[in-house]
Design a protein around this nucleic acid. Structure first.
Length: 255
DNA sequence: ATGGTAGAAACTCTA
């Protein structure tokens, strides 16, 4: 079984690239973030023709998440229960016995801003909910754009990024608290190339210069981590014309 | 010292 996550930064713009990517990688499940589409505009038919069912929670202009799957999604839920949020950042579904949670963590804008406080509150609410969700569903996978680079190895220049949003202490501590409920960063279950990143700013030729961060993650419960045989970042879509600023991440699970 | 780019949508905000 193959699960993937990709912040597409506008599903409308990226749909042709996504459809081609699905043919190349034939994942069973794909979590998408920043679809930036209202539900009425979701390209359900194009994806159905490609062999994928979809559940989605979108809004105009910003945010928006979706789960594509070969199997029909079961027990679909939107948002973090009990956490009031206008922004569409979470959708979950059960697929082939696996509870799949797709998250688009707030960016945080800058350390100390209102959006940064919202990000930290949001991560605490996510952690509290997922702790319960893990008890209900031992086979839990949480995929998405976390907007947090956990370790120095996940940042092209840790000195430059120290204390900055996406790599600040409180964000990294919140990420560790999320792992502490019983989730594993699947990427670090295996030896990986140095300077492995999933996001590069559109500006300053950051991609060509290797100025990236690893902020998109696939977290697995212990039960799923035991089944995991591979986790890779696919940088190819980032090289294409008119790319998303994020690369997809893929995991393989054995039966 | 605070721009640089991309997306959506409206002439600015978010990332």
């Amino acid at each position: 079984m193959r699960l993937a996550t990709w912040n597409v930064n506008s599903l409308k713009v990226r749909l042709p690239q996504l459809l081609a990517w699905l043919v190349r990688h034939h994942p069973d499940v794909v979590c998408l973030q920043e679809t930036k589409l209202e539900d009425a505009a979701f390209p359900r038919d194009d994806l159905a023709k490609a062999g994928y069912a979809a559940c989605f929670a979108g809004q105009k202009t910003y945010n928006g998440v979706a789960i594509l799957s070969r199997a029909a999604p079961q027990e679909v839920s939107v948002g973090i229960p009990g956490f009031q949020d206008e922004q569409k950042r979470v959708i979950a579904a059960t697929l082939d016995g696996i509870r799949v949670v797709c998250v688009y963590v707030p960016n945080g804008q800058s350390v100390g801003s209102d959006k940064y406080d919202y990000k930290l509150r949001w991560l605490e609410a996510l952690t509290a909910w997922l702790k319960e969700e893990l008890e209900r569903h031992p086979q839990l996978a949480v995929l998405g754009d976390y907007n947090v680079a956990p370790e120095e190895a996940d940042v092209h220049d840790p000195k430059q990024w120290e204390g900055q949003v996406l790599f600040s202490g409180p964000e990294r501590e919140a990420f560790q608290r999320l792992l502490s409920i019983g989730l594993k960063d699947s990427f670090r279950l295996f030896p990986q190339p140095e300077k492995s990143f999933t996001w590069w700013d559109y500006r300053m030729n950051a991609f060509k210069r290797g100025m990236g961060l690893r902020i998109d993650h696939i977290l697995l419960s212990e039960a799923l981590a035991r089944r995991c045989t591979r986790c890779v970042i696919d940088v190819e879509p980032r090289r294409e014309a008119r790319p998303s600023d994020h690369a997809p991440v893929i995991v393989e699970l054995k039966p």
